[in-house]
């Protein structure tokens, strides 16, 4: 089929795909590449469920066109763990039960990873505001904040 040829690196692997001009990066990840961890919660960049990291920057994949990803390096939830070894954030989300239905969780994990990259030692307030781009209807955010605090502590010691 015809389409725009795009070369990217996704979770460390070289990935080439064809997409239509109107397809978002989220559409490409989910429908063409089978990476369904990122979710579409709103399609307008308000809920953060589709958060991925593009060239070191946290973005809503619903607001980026697939064709714009040319030459980019993309991190998604599927690449967060190192094989069977979970990322400290994933470990702490498990330990604290920082999720319930799980649909917003990949977005929160990517946003938290980005937050801790920029600010390895955040206060509770900085975590709450740092994750304010992500909506969760289940948890009341309490356990998410605890998990991120705890992960930050572990990652600093690592």
């Amino acid at each position: 089929m015809s389409g725009i040829a795009v070369s990217t690196t996704i979770n460390g692997d070289a990935v080439e795909f064809l997409c239509q001009a109107e397809e978002t990066l989220l559409d490409v990840l989910r429908d063409r590449l089978g990476l369904t961890g990122a979710k579409e919660g709103c399609g307008t960049g308000d809920c953060g469920a589709c958060s991925v990291i593009v060239d070191g920057r946290l973005v809503c994949a619903c607001l980026v066109l697939g064709a714009e990803a040319e030459g980019s390096s993309i991190e998604t939830i599927e690449g967060m763990a190192d094989g069977d070894k979970l990322h400290p954030l994933q470990e702490k989300f498990l330990e604290h039960a920082a999720l319930q239905c799980g649909v917003c969780t990949p977005g929160f994990l990517m946003a938290a990873k980005d937050l801790l990259t920029r600010n390895p030692d955040p206060t509770e307030e900085e975590i709450r505001f740092g994750l304010a781009g992500n909506l969760c209807r289940c948890t009341g955010y309490d356990k998410i904040v605890r998990a991120v605090q705890d992960a930050a502590r572990v990652m600093k010691g690592a």
């Binding site: 579409e40 939830i77 979970l86």
Partner: peptide
Amino acid sequence: VRRKEDQRFITGRGHYTDD
């Protein structure tokens, strides 16, 4: 007890209807 269901959710491998 840690939640059994979380392993798939934190790795992006849940199966929701739209998936």
